[in-house]
Every structure is written in structure tokens, then in C-alpha cells.
Amino acid sequence: MTEGMKLGYLPGNREDSTYQLSDEHVNVDLPEGFMDNEYEDPDLERFLDKFQEREPQVAVIGDAYNAEQAREYQKVVEDLLEDYPRRRFIVVPKSEETFDLLDPETTTLGYANGNSQIQAEDLGPAKFRAWDVHILGGNPHEAYDAIEKLTQPTVDRRPPANVVGYDCNLPLRMAHWEYWTPDGWIDNGHLTPRETARRSYQEIKEFWQKKDLWPETEPVELYGEPTEEPEELIWMDEGGDPIGSIKDLEEAYVGHYEDRGKMAFRSEVEKKFIEYRENLTGI
């Protein structure tokens, strides 16, 4: 996740999952910018509890299979916007009747493009035009095909959709075996899972940049870096040994001091000891 954010992606996860960061990763601070629902086991009350706990910028409320669900989710969106303005709330239509019950002024449509049994394609891309749309899943080629269907000119001059987002968990799902490229999946060979995921992120970013579909502002500009870096990449409590990897940095205890700038320590005990011994004043 830190690799993805550094490359310009908005971190996110499903409501029933976490970033799986252990207590060892003390120098990692990732925003949960996007939260998906557990579509195979939906529970609106559980979802709302998780939303209030994490407060993501973008949230998939649920899949609306019928009119009753569409009305319920639309009411949830309106209620949430009162307390959480300037957030984006997504409802995924799964039947034709649901479109007329959702409000384009407040609600973004989720375009099912991954593993869902009912795909947006089954309902017809034309139903999504003139809406704000977030594409849910599919590899970048499949997502780009969907964008073209949603935005290309039509004979009847129907207004295009405004495609506002796309999420995909393939780089993490495939990180033990392969990385994605525009020409297909490539065996990761000697790469670690982390390096494999990073390569996928790089390739996907370059793919969207070549399509001129990469955002001008990246999340790290809004939230800051996911890890604090000391002024010099050395451990202050072990004779100035260098920090050798990103993993080392994530496990570092970093302090920011008036006279010394940012310093890194291997343990919280050593950090407190040197702060006391050197009379360091924190900022």
C-alpha cells in the first residue's frame, strides 16, 4: 500500500479488511481514501460503523438489486452528506428499475466491471451516461474499454458519463506471481511480492498517463508521505548504521527535534533514552 501511494494511488480497502499492518510498522500512516462494501455479504449497519470509524473520501454504499434497496441507499447517501460533505458516495445499480430512484446530484453510479454476477454491461452502458461513474474492477484495458463506451459520441447525441474513478486490486492479488503490463501478465522471476506489486503500479500508471487519464493532483500531495523520513537515512542508536530498506524505514521510530531535525531509532526504548540523554526538544 505504501508503494502504491508513493506512486500516486489513493489507498483503500474493503470494509471487512484492513491494511494488515502489524504493530511493527510504527512509521506508516496511510489514509483510507476509498472503502468498498462486502458485496457478497452486505450489511448496511456494519458498513456504516466502518465508515464512521475510517471516514474515507470515497465509499461504495452497496449494490442495489431492487427498488427497495435503491431507495434505502439513496437515503443513506443523503444522510451521510449532511455530516460528511464533499465526500463521494457510490451505489451500484444491478437492475434497470434502480436508475430512476437514485439522484445524480448526490450519488455516483458504480459500474460493475469485475467479478460481479451482474455486470454493468448486462444493463447497458447507455444507462450510465450523463451520470458521475466509478468503474469497479477489471484490468486497465477492460476499464479503458468501459470508459470509451461511456464517453464516445453516439448517434442520438446522448451526453457522456463523467468517469470520476477506477479501482482495481489486481496488483496485490497477483503480487506473489506476476506483474501487469499493457502486453499481459509477466512472471515476476526474482522479484519479491512487494517489488512485483510496485512494478504493476508503475506499469498501470504509465498506461493511464499515455491515455491522458491520470489526475493532476496525487493523494500524497493532499495527505503527505506515508512514512516520515529522517534528515539522514541512518539509525541514531546503532553507531550511525544506514537504514537499508523501505521495510527498515517503516519499522523506524522517527522523531522531529528543534536542533537536530528528524532522527530515526530502531526501538521506542532507545528513542526515549536518547531524547532524555541529549535533552532533545520535540516539535
Rank of each mutant, 00 (worst) to 15 (best):
T2P: 04
Y9L: 12
G12K: 01
S22T: 15
V26W: 02
V26D: 00
V28F: 02
D29I: 08
P31S: 09
E38A: 04
E38P: 00
D43W: 05
E45F: 02
D49V: 07
Q52V: 04
E53R: 09
A59W: 00
I61V: 15
Y73T: 06
Q74T: 11
Y84E: 00
R88P: 01
I90T: 06
E96A: 01
T98Y: 01
D103G: 09
P104W: 06
E105H: 09
T106F: 05
L123C: 06
R129K: 12
A130R: 13
V133Y: 07
V133W: 10
L136W: 06
Y144Q: 06
L150F: 01
P153M: 08
P153G: 09
D167L: 00
P171F: 07
M174T: 05
G184Y: 06
W185G: 01
D187Q: 10
N188M: 06
N188E: 07
T192D: 03
E195Q: 15
R198D: 12
Q202S: 07
E203P: 02
E206Q: 15
K211M: 11
E216W: 01
E218P: 05
G224W: 00
P226F: 09
L233Q: 09
E238F: 05
G239P: 00
D241H: 13
V254Y: 07
Y257Q: 02
V269Y: 09
F273T: 13
E275D: 01
E275P: 04
E278F: 14
T281S: 12
G282S: 14
I283V: 15
